[in-house]
Amino acid sequence: MSHSQLYLNLAVNGLVEGLIIAMAALGITLVYAVAKFPNAATGDFMTFSAYTAKGASVLAGGSLVFGAGVAVLASALLAALAYLLIFRRLAGRKLVAPLVVSIGLAFLIRNTLTFFVGTDPTVLPVPIVRAVEVGGIFLQPLDLAVAAGAAISLAAAFIVLHKTPIGRRMRAVAGNADLARVSGIRAGRVMLQLWLLVGMLAAVAGVLLAAKSVIEPEMGWHLLLPAFAAAILGGVGSPIGALVGGVLIGLAQELSVPLVGSTYKAAVGFVVILVVLLVRPSGLLGRDRSVR
């Protein structure tokens, strides 16, 4: 493989990794914009979805589609419950309350999973096929699935936010919650719809991550820092920003491997966050100016 071919391949990897990060960032950016806090349980919604997909597909005799479908429904339900039982009661509290509670929720979800299924890694029943080579660049069928998943998630988020009354209300609450309430928007309903959406998005991300990789208890948790970086880079509240941010972070991480080694690859997210917040805190596409 020539040097330039290697870098092109790394770019492809970065793109695919970045799309997964972007899907996680999408859920984070929506909750951040509407509910105004960084949701540290996002990763564990993804993990929960992956395990659910595995369990359901095993029960259905190996049907991945069935598994994914069940995962989407279950994750939406979990997110809705998290809102109804927990986050709703934190309305009006300072930011640190839902943030810290989301960490507690992350611990709770992850460890309830391992209580029942143990900690051994497992895989989804995805057939292993050879990659297609095009001029020295390798493409997996699974890469296309990830790209499709990301595109669908982004399209869904975008359409809901900008083309539906539900989304309009979400944006109103995100922009100015008091004004929205005064205009008659019932925050409780909007929030519930938000969390349902976020749950579904997390499920898509979790299932695709599981398909590409292995299912293990901390799979979603490990994505948290890059996903936050992507949401901040893209500008909190902007779904396209989450996509762009995710892809850029993914590319930066993978392309840095020959340069800084695999260990420091994980530091890329941190560096990006720091640089963005110092230089352009609203991110590439965001409108949030209240960083300082």
Partner: peptide
Amino acid sequence: YEPSKPSYRSELQT
């Protein structure tokens, strides 16, 4: 490479 990563494709290709 570091543990617990979802993919090692870049490391492998390098």
